[in-house]
Design a protein around this nucleic acid. Structure first.
Lengths: 141, 141
DNA sequence: ATAACAAATGCAACAAAGTTGCAAAAAGAA
DNA sequence: TTCTTTTTGCAACTTTGTTGCATTTGTTAT
């Protein structure tokens, strides 16, 4: 049951279990792809205030439940983290894929971001790789 | 002289040469890093309307004068393209670096984005690599 | 189970960012 | 210079994101 998993996840991250948080976490678990703030606002229905969504995403981010995915269209997406992320310490070394047809953003957990050599003087703290193209579902090519 | 280069660039891309476009292009040539809409609005002073900045960036993008750089903070940056970009056909295969200290975003022209193997069913059209950390100027480590 | 406390929510009021239509102004061509 | 096309600025608006505060809800200890 998804219900119990949601509650378990919230408990594990020391977040108090509220309707809003349960609902939003549920969305992430069901959806399988990344969600933007707007997506969530729409899907969660009118049951929750816009502000609550902002604050919930913020809380999830800080607790390492989700990670954010940059974008070129001013709409950051969020996706569930794997278990080895916690308290803002993300271990997300996978590639993100943005489909130009369906618009979905997904985590390619199995594709690891390759390491690169930076010019002298630069030091890297985080690397993000964003691939756009046609995804598996749309690729009837 | 930078003046002439600006005009030359605009002519080459078949954009009519106006004060606003000259000024904004000038900013890009002077600044050496990437600029967000907000940056430009501030730097260009009150001389130009907000709307003009939007439209100018849009035009520059379409003509391949600049390319956009995704971000995790809802503020897309733009940077000059090299000569081999034209009319929406970007050839920007370099890594972008975001400094966590000074906040600047720069193009690491000399670092090429490595190619990766995607899972079966996915096809890539564009790859973006975003590295954040400490840049050369800030790296007094 | 309930009282006491802490935390989250909703609301309202903003601030900031982005969009659109249209008349005036400036650029480009003849 | 004059005509035509493009760009600009303005106004009005929509969307997105933020903050403070009173109310409600969850949590903990009794």
């Amino acid at each position: 049951m998804i219900e119990s998993k949601v509650t378990e996840l919230l408990k594990k991250t020391q977040l108090s279990v509220t309707d809003g948080r349960r609902r939003i976490l549920e969305l992430f678990l069901q959806h399988e792809g990344a969600l933007s703030h707007g997506d969530i606002e729409k899907k969660a229905g009118e049951k929750f205030d816009r502000v609550t969504v902002y604050r919930t995403l913020q809380a999830f981010l800080e607790k390492g439940l989700i990670h954010s995915i940059p974008s070129s269209d001013n709409s950051i997406r969020y996706a569930l983290c794997k278990d080895d992320c916690s308290d803002g310490h993300h271990q997300d070394d996978h590639v993100h894929f943005i489909c130009n047809r369906c618009g979905n953003t997904t985590c390619l957990e199995e594709v690891v971001v390759p390491s690169i050599k930076l010019p002298r003087g630069y030091s890297a703290q985080q690397v993000e790789m964003l691939v756009s193209g046609i995804c598996k579902s749309c690729g009837g090519a």
